[in-house]
Design a protein around this nucleic acid. Structure first.
Lengths: 162, 162
DNA sequence: TTAAAGATTCAGTGTTGCTTGAACATACTG
DNA sequence: CAGTATGTTCAAGCAACACTGAATCTTTAA
């Protein structure tokens, strides 16, 4: 029974675990969630084996899950001079990609409705109207939300005064 | 090998299946997604055994999944005079609950960050700042989105001119 | 080129959770 | 009351997926 690295505070490990549980309900694997949680609370970028040791998981899992998290824009890879390992850190403009991923999901559903063949609701005005209404709401809310995201980005995005 | 009811058009069955696949990525079961898809495209409310026959699934599954969908506000039960069965239909103000469910998920994550014990990032300004920024973004976007939802509701919610 | 570290892929194992038939509960009808 | 229709719960089978150790690939250093 491998133990988690002792350098991790109990409260930190706790929060990481809760984040992982949350991520699990969002379609990630538990380890994926742990990685994200660990990086979110990390003072500095971490290497693959650092994560593996820290989270008591195999390097195979870390490798797979980091790639998945990266593809979804939640984390990014960085290098360190004089070190050939790859380091991972939370995406620099974190809120944007997080929300963008969610936006993308909605769009997929909207597209699904749009693609509904014309013949599907033929003869049934009630269905046709329901689909139209739903689609209209999605369009409206998606647009509003994109705007808000854009606004936030402009308001906060530029100042890189670390 | 039970077949799907022949009264369902092929294109309709197809769309239902794609909706079900989408719902699966959203944390529902496949059958749950099928039920929602079927009801979304249904001209009229459907009974439990109607759904079971139509979707070639057991009544047990339909019973479980309808309850889950109802709890999440996506469908609702209605009665028909002179019939003791329970009928299901898509929620009347569909877009609202759909979006509300999503909002609720975000709020859960925000709460997770808020509950992060103070000691967690002590000594690390970079972590503290990252958490603060993320939380600020979430608060901003959640507020904006709630407003938009409210606006939509007011704009569209009242006219019940069926 | 070889040696070695670092990262990825693969095949196997275990766990989770969906789905179902059957048993059970409830409520209506005559 | 008995009989029946309707809906829910339960235990078990099964499929899907996460996770891992080992093998493989890639890159760097000497």
């Amino acid at each position: 029974m491998p133990r988690r690295d002792a350098t991790l505070q109990a409260s930190t490990a706790d929060l990481i675990e809760r984040i992982a549980l949350f991520f699990e309900t969002e379609g990630f694997s538990r380890i994926g969630g742990r990685i994200f949680g660990r990086l979110l609370l990390a003072d500095t970028a971490m290497s693959l084996d650092g994560l593996a040791a820290d989270l008591a998981a195999s390097k195979a899992s870390i490798s797979t899950e980091t790639r998945s998290l990266e593809r979804r824009g939640l984390i990014e890879r960085v290098g360190k001079p004089g070190d050939r390992r790859v380091y991972y850190q939370v995406a620099s403009e974190l809120p944007i990609p997080t929300m963008s991923v969610r936006l993308e999901r909605w769009r997929r559903f909207s597209r699904l409705l749009e693609e509904a063949p014309a013949d599907i609701a033929r003869g049934s005005t009630v269905v046709r109207r329901r689909l139209d209404d739903t689609l209209a709401a999605h369009r409206y809310l998606l647009a509003e939300f994109s705007d808000a995201l854009e606004r936030w980005h402009r308001r906060r995005g530029s100042p890189r005064q670390a």
